[in-house]
Design a protein around this nucleic acid. Structure first.
Lengths: 352, 352
DNA sequence: TTGTACGCGTTATCAG
DNA sequence: CTGATAACGCGTACAA
């Protein structure tokens, strides 16, 4: 009815702005802004007055407005394939902590292993005006044009774990090759002579590297790699079971399996037990990811830990560096973390 | 060097705004705005021209500015205790899908079971100017003043799963009591006569309800509840093991255990197997949450499924209703979902 | 149907 | 050290 009528002292129901503080104190908005952002040229007394009133009126800064003005928000966008299991939640945990320390909030989107959704996620994040984008690729992402927009806008872009194949990007990865080596080497040191490998999709860097580590270990022990011992799949539990059945038909029997994931090894374990084959005595097992369930199975599963939290932290650190030096983002910068092998009963040959 | 010099036609490197489109087309910003938001009073021809140029110049709407203008963003804030395990990821999945359908993006924050962090999360979300807040409480949240600010700002607030004890709030919950009943009743029907209960912290609604369901089932079978059969803990695997050891010392032996969570039952299972007690023949087991690992253990664990995705969807629906009718948010509105019992070997008495 | 002008809450620039 | 003023990009009464 009387839209223009100035409410004298009753604060507007939603939100109290810098203007309100300024009016109340009889100073300018500039002064208020400076007091709140701890600018150097501000009287100590004035500053205190402002801060006090701000607390009293429960002033909440409108970050949207600040972001609009500065063309930069304090939001960090993260795109991951999924958040089930142990790996991604833990990485996100690392991201959140490091981001929070630097004053950033985190938005998480899931691509559900679908490029289409990944594309939309990137759009969403750009719409939200994020200050940076952290991505782990969907399984079927083979083309990367949807990330061009991010770069074009000058927004720092960091890939982690699953990174583009042959692109000039900034990234944080685990030394998957070293992990594959450690696991396979361990099996060989336990006395295995014919170790099979349940490999993942080879267009993903991580699975290529894990296989490479497997091959390295064989070579280090003077063994020839054999076609029939390497089985490719999407590494589900089901596929692990199937692959294992296939391996059991070989004339020359195997005595160890290194899987590029834990689920695939879980499938293997269940199949072996179902057939009365003893683990690790007959066939020893080692997986990758150190999932929670590796400590539940019987026997418990040996697995490679991926330093999840560290990866998240490293990704944020890299983002912060890129944000500080905008022109640096066209460089290729790669952080490599060292994995750690967790040895459990599935791979330990009884002593004596 | 020449900061004020107007670049004639070269678009500014970052972002192309409505003003750019308007200038290029020789129309006003209003027209552009209307064309883009599909306003009714806009010439079809003009609209096409605008849309075409927008696509050509790769115009990206600045949602921040829109949000600032309208005092409302299209962001939905979610606070959960953690994202490990199955439950919360699945709920979030449900939230994301429903939110996306309604044109909202989702920010997820973890409280890590810490009220302090939960408080900060709420602040963060308010700073991000979210349009709504969806919360599942931290384990040690006993006071709820940090949510007052949300209400004061007129932002829809929906609790799910772990909700405040005696507060007038809008919420989505599972019928935990029915779940507790179903699981316990099933054990009793399988022939158990002395069923113990591994209970959770009673200040959390969900665990109170599950215990209530346990008691209901006992009563339905004409059994008296007994103090010594109910053991309270935080329901970790470790505590499940410990509680089980304690139960095994009872003079009058038990023949079944219903746990308010799956981890606690996992601990029980391992302890029982370690002591050579057969499951389910000697003692039958049933848990709650239908975690992934319930299908891995030997025997596999009977458990109550929580309809995670549905819960997420329901929470978003409730949010949308509140957003549509702002005055309704002080009502108490509760959506209750029905659980489903997944029966596996841990509770099945061999026939004959 | 289209255009003008203002304000959302903040910060940067410049002048005092 | 402080204040006035102009943006940031968008939506919307109001006028044409």
């Amino acid at each position: 009815m009387t839209p223009r009528k100035k409410q004298s002292s009753a604060p507007s129901p939603h939100a109290v702005s810098m203007a309100d503080l300024a009016r109340e104190l009889g100073v300018s908005m500039t002064t208020v802004s400076r007091a709140l952002s701890d600018h150097h040229s501000i009287g100590a007394a004035t500053k205190q007055r402002v801060l006090k009133l701000a607390k009293k009126l429960n002033y909440q800064p409108n970050h949207l407005a600040a972001a609009l003005r500065k063309g930069q928000s304090r939001l960090l966008g993260v795109v991951v394939p999924y958040i089930e299991g142990k790996f991604f939640p833990s990485v996100i945990q690392g991201i959140e902590q490091a981001a929070s320390k630097a004053g950033f909030s985190v938005i998480v989107c899931q691509s559900h292993e679908d490029v289409q959704l990944e594309r939309r996620n990137v759009e969403t994040l750009l719409h939200a005006q994020v200050a940076g984008v952290l991505v782990s690729l969907a399984r079927n992402t083979l083309e990367f044009h949807h990330f061009d927009k991010v770069r074009e806008r000058g927004i720092p872009l960091v890939f982690f774990d699953r990174i583009p194949a042959s692109e000039f990007v900034n990234s944080v990865v685990l030394d998957d090759r070293a992990g594959g080596f450690a696991a396979t080497n361990h099996l060989l040191e336990q006395g295995c002579r014919r170790v099979a490998h349940l490999a993942g999709p080879q267009h993903l860097n991580i699975y290529r590297q894990r296989q490479q580590g497997y091959l390295d270990a064989l070579a280090a022990h003077g063994l020839e790699p054999q076609q029939e011992l390497i089985i490719y799949s999407d590494m589900t539990q089901e596929e692990g079971a199937q692959a294992t059945r296939q391996l059991l038909t070989l004339a020359n029997p195997i005595d160890g399996i290194f899987g590029a994931g834990d689920s695939v090894i879980l499938g293997a374990l269940q199949t072996l037990k179902g057939q009365g084959i003893r683990v690790p005595r007959d066939i020893a097992l080692a997986g990758f990811s150190n999932e929670g369930f590796t400590a539940i199975t019987e026997p418990r599963l040996t697995s490679v830990d991926q330093r999840c939290e560290e990866m998240g932290e490293a990704a944020v650190r890299l983002f912060l560096e890129l944000a500080a030096a905008p022109e640096a983002q066209f460089q290729q910068r790669q952080v490599v973390l060292q994995p750690e092998l967790f040895i459990r009963e599935s791979s330990l040959q009884a002593v004596g």
